[in-house]
Design a protein around this nucleic acid. Structure first.
Lengths: 207, 207, 207, 207
DNA sequence: TATGAATGAGGTTTCATTCAT
DNA sequence: TATGAATGAAACCTCATTCAT
C-alpha cells in the first residue's frame, strides 16, 4: 500500500473521486428536476443544475431514460429504506404498517416523475418493485400474525395502495398538503381486521 | 358510452356537417391517442388517425394543449355523466356511492393522459372539477342522510379518492385489470359509518 | 326594355351586380390590409374585412399575388390620375412638377406594400410603370420647354425619384409625417435648371 | 469589405473557436441570403449555406428575427464604418459628404432586406440609427463650417435621404446599376449652399 | 355563384445525443 | 476525463389554395 505511489494512482483516485462526485451531483440534480418538472424536462436543465457538462452527464448515463430510471430507483430505494426502518422500529404491528405508509408517502410528496413512472411501469424498476413487495410483506406478515389485518389482503393490494395514494399526495401537494393523510386513514381503516367481508377475487373483472 | 356527445346539434348547411364530423373525429382520435401514449404524442398521429389534415386539426384546436384540455374535459364529462346516471338509478345510497366510483373508474381504465392531467392540474379543468364536486356531493349527501357514511367525510375526500384510485386503475390496467376493485372495496369499507373515529384535520400535517 | 322580364335577366343582373360589388369590396379591403400589414398578410384577413368567403375571393383573383398586383395597380393608377390632374390644372410648369410629386407621394403615405413592390419589381406593374413614365414625361416636357428643368434629366430619373421618395414618405409616416417634403424640396431644387453641371452617364458605374 | 468584423476576439479553449467561426459563418450566409431573398427566406437555407445544423443556428440566434436584426446591424455597421472612413480620409468637406453617401449606398446595392427593414422599423436598430446620426452629423458639421451646405439642412434630413436613396439603389440594382448616382447628384446639388431658400418646417404638413 | 372548411407542404423551433477539443 | 457546441430529426404551427355543398 505504501508502494506504487509514483505512477498515477493519486490523480486516478482524484479522477475517481471527481467522477463519483459528479455522478452524485447529477443524480441529486436530476432528482430535483424530475420531481419538479416530470420526466419530460430538457436534459440541459439537469446538466445546468448539477454543474456538469452534457458530455459528463452522458458519460455516466448513456441515455436520458437510463438516468431517469436510475434516479427513480435511487430515490425509491431510499424512501423504502426509510419506511422500512420506521416499521422495524415500531413495536405495534398496526402502528408499523401505518408508519410505513406515512413515511413512504411523506417522502414522495411533490415528485411528479414518480407518479408518472407508477402509471407507465408499475413502479421504478423490477428490482425496486420486488424489494418493495418484500418489505411490505414483512409488515403485512406481522399484522397478519397479530390478527389485525383484514383477511385476504395481499401484498399486491398494499403495494397498489401505496401507488394509488402517491397520486393523492402529489395532487394535493401544493394546495392542501397533508390532506392525503385522511385518505390513508380511511384506507387503513378499511384494511383492519374489523372488516371481515371478503374482497373481490383478483383477476375477476365483474362486480 | 360514446364520446363527442354534444357534437352535432344541427348539421347545418354547407360543409358544416363535415366540420362537426371532423371535430368529433379529432376528439375521438385524440382521446385514443392521448390515452395510449400520454400527452406528449405527435399531433400528426392524431391527425392521421382522425383522417384529417393538420390544418383542419388546428382550425378546430388552435393549440395542442387546447386539444388535450378539450378532450380530457369531454371524456371526463362523459364519464361523470355515466357515473351520475348510475348513481341516480340506484336506490340504496351506499350502492349508489359504490356504483358511482365503479362506473367512473371503469371508464378511466387505460387512459394515461387523465392521470397525467390529475397530477398536473388537479383535474381536467376547473369547470369539470366543479361539476365533479357537485355530483359527488349529491351522492355523499344521500349517504349522510341515510347515516351510512362515516362522519366527517367531505366531498373533497371523495374527489381525492377518485383521483387516487384512477392511478391504481391505470397501473393495473394491463397486467391485472379489475384488481383495483379490491382497493375500492377497502376504501369504501373505510368510509362506512362503521368507522367512527375522526379523520385527521385537513390542513394538519401531523399524525 | 319592358319585355323579356320573366326569363332570368334580373337575377342575372343581380348576380352580376353582386359580383361587381364583391370585387370592389375585395379590392377595397385588400388595399387597406396590404397597406397596413404589407404584402405578407394572411389572405383570410382580406376575406374577413371584405366580407366575402375565400372561394369568392379566389374566384375573382386566382392567386394572392394577382390580387396584390391588381390592388397595387388600381391604387397606383388612381394616385397617378390624381397627380396628373393636379399637374394639368397647374399653369406654371415648375409648379406642375412640384404638385405632381406632392400629390403622388401624399397618397402613398403609409402604404407598405407599395414600397415593397418598388423594391422587388421596380413598380406595381409594367403597364403602370409605362403610364407613369408617360405622365411624368408630359410634365417633364413642359418644364423642359419652359427651360426650368436641369438639362439631361430624364423621365427615368424622375420616376426613380418618386420611388425613392416613397421610401422616405413611408419611413416617416408614423413618427414625422410631412418631413419628406423637405427631401422633395431638396431634390426639386437639384432638378432646377439653375444646376447646369451634367449628371453622371446612365449605365456608367464609375464616379 | 469583410463582414463579421468583431467576431473572434480571442479564439479560446475548446470548441469555442468553432463557435465563433460558426457564428461568423451564419452571419455571413444570412447576410447573403437575406440580401438575395428578403427577410422571408427559409431559415434552413441559411443553415445550409453556412454549413451548420439548425440547432447551431438557433444556439446563436434564438429567433429568426434576432438573426435578421443582428445581420442587418452588422452589415449596416460595417457599411457605416466604411463610409465614415471614406469621409474622414477626404479633405474637402463636400467631397467627404459625397463620398460618404456613395460609399454607403454602393454597399447597400442589391440587399433587399435592408430596404425592407427601413420600411418597417425606420432602420436596422436604435443603436445603429444613433451611430448613423452621429457619423452623418460629423460630415454635416464639416460642411456647415465650410459654408458649403444649404442652411437649415439637418442630420435627420441627410439620414432620411440615405434611406430614400437606398430604395433607388435597390430598385435599379438589377436593370440599371449605377443609375442611382444621378439621383444622388441631384439631391446633393439641392443640398449645396447655392440653394438658400428655406426648407419646409419639419412637422408642418402644408405646402 | 358564394361559402368557409379542408388540405398539406413548408416554416420556425426544440431537444436527445454525439464529438472535437 | 470533462466540456458544451454541434447536430438534425421531429415537433408544433401557418397559410396559400382547393373543393364539396
Amino acid at each position: 500500500m505504501t508502494l506504487a505511489d509514483h505512477a498515477a494512482p493519486a490523480p486516478r483516485r482524484g479522477r475517481w473521486a471527481d467522477a463519483e462526485r459528479n455522478r452524485a451531483a447529477i443524480i441529486e440534480a436530476a432528482g430535483q428536476v424530475f420531481a419538479e418538472c416530470g420526466g419530460s424536462v430538457d436534459v440541459r436543465e439537469i446538466a445546468r443544475r448539477s454543474g456538469v457538462g452534457m458530455g459528463t452527464l452522458y458519460r455516466h448515463f448513456p441515455t436520458k431514460d437510463e438516468l431517469l430510471t436510475t434516479v427513480l430507483e435511487q430515490q425509491f430505494n431510499a424512501w423504502l429504506t426509510d419506511a422500512h426502518q420506521q416499521a422495524v422500529a415500531t413495536e405495534d404491528p398496526w402502528q408499523a404498517l401505518t408508519g410505513f405508509f406515512e413515511q413512504l408517502l411523506d417522502n414522495q410528496a411533490d415528485n411528479r416523475a414518480v407518479v408518472e413512472s407508477y402509471a407507465t411501469t408499475g413502479g421504478p424498476s423490477e428490482y425496486c418493485v420486488q424489494r418493495c413487495y418484500s418489505l411490505i410483506d414483512q409488515v403485512r406478515t406481522r399484522c397478519v400474525d397479530a390478527g389485525v389485518l383484514r383477511p385476504g389482503v395481499t401484498t399486491e393490494d398494499l403495494f397498489l395502495l401505496s401507488g394509488s395514494l402517491s397520486q393523492a399526495v402529489l395532487t394535493t401537494a401544493d394546495s392542501h398538503p397533508g390532506r392525503w393523510r385522511r385518505l390513508l386513514r380511511i384506507s387503513l381503516d378499511g384494511l383492519s381486521s374489523r372488516n371481515t367481508e371478503p374482497l373481490p377475487e383478483p383477476g375477476t373483472a365483474g362486480s
